[in-house]
Simulated scan of single mutants.
Amino acid sequence: MTKLLLSVHVLAAILAIGPIAVAASMFPRYTRTPDAEGEGPQTARVLHRICRAYTVLGIAVPVFGVATGARLGVLADAWLLASIVLTAAAAALLVLVILPAQQRLLGGPERAGAARLAMSTGVFNLLWAVVVVLMIVRPGSTTGA
């Protein structure tokens, strides 16, 4: 059962968080530079929809992560607690900053807003990168990693 939970957790992270990271990173570019056919704003709307939809699917990542941690008996380990805090920070950044900023920028391009959004998205991606490293390295692990 632990292997199944871990597999679903990893797959959910790849399939839910990956598209958010890519779509959110691409979004500011399409709000700053509309192309000749006017597809920039249309592309931005699609990227925003991707971010919103995958945010809902992304809830599976911590749910299965906590279930896996409970099965492994590591819920009190420092590396997992740090990962949970960083995951919560990334989720809050996505829901409270990135998605609302995208929605605002869909109303009309503003250079400062797009730059702030790009920075926020970079921080979001960095938080996830740290979580991935913590999940692989796991301080105190007996796997030899």
Results as ranks from 00 to 15, higher is better:
33 T>A: 07
112 A>R: 15
144 G>V: 13
77 D>P: 04
77 D>T: 14
23 A>S: 14
117 L>R: 03
73 G>F: 08
48 H>I: 04
16 A>Q: 01
67 A>T: 02
79 W>C: 02
88 A>S: 00
102 Q>L: 03
38 G>D: 09
108 G>F: 10
94 L>F: 02
136 I>M: 12
69 G>I: 08
145 A>K: 14
138 R>A: 00
60 A>F: 05
135 M>Y: 02
119 M>T: 13
94 L>S: 02
50 I>S: 08
37 E>P: 09
59 I>E: 07
84 I>A: 13
71 R>N: 08
111 R>V: 12
64 F>R: 00
37 E>T: 13
23 A>V: 08
118 A>H: 12
101 A>H: 04
41 P>T: 13
98 I>T: 05
96 L>D: 15
41 P>V: 13
115 A>K: 11
87 T>W: 06
113 G>W: 05
19 P>K: 11
84 I>R: 07
123 V>D: 09
8 V>R: 01
9 H>P: 11
117 L>K: 03
6 L>E: 07
66 V>K: 08
67 A>L: 15
10 V>Q: 05
87 T>G: 11
71 R>P: 00
103 Q>I: 00
141 S>A: 07
41 P>Y: 10
131 V>N: 01
52 R>W: 15
56 V>P: 11
40 G>A: 03
39 E>H: 13
23 A>I: 07
88 A>T: 00
115 A>R: 15
116 R>Q: 12
69 G>Y: 08
121 T>G: 12
51 C>R: 02
18 G>H: 02
2 T>L: 07
67 A>I: 03
10 V>E: 04
66 V>A: 14
50 I>E: 07
139 P>I: 03
50 I>Y: 08
42 Q>L: 12
82 A>D: 09
122 G>E: 04
2 T>M: 01
71 R>V: 06
53 A>L: 15
1 M>R: 06
120 S>N: 12
141 S>M: 01
110 E>K: 15
116 R>D: 10
